[in-house]
Nucleic acid binder design. Structure first.
Lengths: 256, 256
DNA sequence: CAGCTTGTTCGAATAGCTTGAACAGGCTTT
DNA sequence: AAAGCCTGTTCAAGCTATTCGAACAAGCTG
């Protein structure tokens, strides 16, 4: 919960190791020379770090290049499976995908951002930038906004202050005033809409899964092309379907 | 490739951080006190490490406990998506699951072990210990044995020497002689069988996906209950189906 | 065969990690 | 209400272990 901490005296050696991992994540496989240049340190230092990370299979050496190991999947899957409602949500999300034939995402909040922990595609579902495990800004998409609206007000302020409101498309919410109006609307409706705010031509609706205090634990969204998800389908039929599913999940969670 | 290296002078501070991550992976969420006890170090040291890892969202603090962040999924999914044949394999595996109604796994080899990078379930597919991202011994299951048989002989020796041949069931191969006989058989047939070697009551067949040199890059397996996967279905129909799929993938890879 | 590049090893210096004690805050207990 | 006992957190000092840079080995290229 909360936000990533500002550590007074972080363990710099560990930060360097994380820096390497992040570099490989962003830029793909790299040689020692490349990593050395990125870190701005001695070649021998980079070498020692890479070999240490390789010993635990976090990194794999292939043709004189280091890359991220599939081992990360193991940790990610375990983290996901331990999430309170993942198992509960999975089957419902699969059902929703079958019923709507559209793309369904389930997201949870971590450190003031949203992470997609499960996705199911219907027959006609579109591919977007969204990816399993990817961190997103809460204000940029339907599931994120649904989560945001059901967090305590002071928490929302904190998050906006920390990350700002960067735009993705020309429809993305970029000012705090707009955001609070939107949150008001979401709280009244019970669900969030995303009208081309994350991807041009893409509409979506999202609804929160709440704990016993009414605070959002995560959210589920349905997304599809703007021309298909529109009018009463987007604003009446889909919300009914989605809120029904979310309601079932919430009840099951309360009795688990 | 190859095996995890024996590092001469590893970065011990990084090893400690990995130790924390592994502890949380094995034992679930833990308090600082618990981590301190596990590491056998000062409370302030554990604190500094935990906060450093939390700053990058690898760990998340919740109710005075630290747990693995869903962020690991991000790294894992990226590592998987970059794998040469993942995209190629995924759609074929989905098709196989539809055609057979059984559980299909796709595994790759890393550091002499196999990792499941994708799984698809058919309507009747069984649930086993197998999990996405989980590391397995190559000799214990169909996909692993298929990979093993198509590695260079000296590599096989290395792997057996490093990890030994631990048993899972009473049918698991546990001696080098048995293993070499099995490898011989697999090389002749072109596919591997798993007759209750990983789970009692579970049969499976696996076939390798090879690069231009004939070395295994990974493998695909079909598994199901022993009573259903048996006789000519297991030894004729399924192999034909599986080898056909694997062949398609191999050809597509060669022209990519 | 020389010259470049790569990855790897090793000793010395000093940066920074670890420690243990002390502080603050939230519980429960008396 | 106060005392006690947990937590998590901070800080200065000592010494461990990281970092550096140079030297070595090995593989390619011209």
């Amino acid at each position: 919960m909360s936000l990533p901490p500002d550590v007074d005296r972080p363990v710099e050696t560990v930060e360097r190791a994380i820096d390497i991992i992040d570099y490989l994540k962003e830029n793909g496989p790299a040689t020692i020379a490349e990593v050395t240049a990125h870190l701005g340190c001695a070649k021998s230092t980079a070498h020692r770090h890479l070999k240490t990370l390789e010993a635990s299979s976090f990194l794999i050496e292939e043709n004189d290049e280091y890359r991220l190991g599939i081992r990360f999947l193991d940790y990610g899957v375990i983290a996901r499976d331990r999430h309170t409602f993942y198992r509960e949500v999975k089957s419902k999300v699969d059902t929703l995908a079958d019923e709507t034939d559209e793309k369904i995402w389930c997201a949870v909040e971590e450190h003031g951002r949203s992470v997609h922990i499960y996705g199911a595609q219907g027959k006609r579902s579109v591919r977007t930038y969204a990816r399993l495990g990817h961190q997103n800004y809460l204000h940029q998409h339907a599931a994120g906004k649904a989560i945001l609206a059901y967090l305590p007000d002071e928490r929302i302020d904190e998050i906006v202050e920390t990350y700002g409101l960067p735009a993705r498309t020309q429809h993305t919410i970029t000012t705090a005033d707009e955001l609070w109006d939107e949150i008001e609307a979401i709280r009244e409706r019970g669900y969030a809409l995303n009208i081309e705010e994350s991807v041009e031509g893409l509409h979506a609706i999202g609804a929160p899964i709440k704990d016993e205090n009414g605070t959002a634990l995560g959210a589920i969204s349905i997304s599809g092309p703007a021309n298909r998800l529109d009018g009463s389908f987007l604003r009446e039929e889909l919300p009914t379907l989605l809120l029904g599913t979310v309601n079932e999940i919430t009840i099951n969670l309360a009795h688990a």
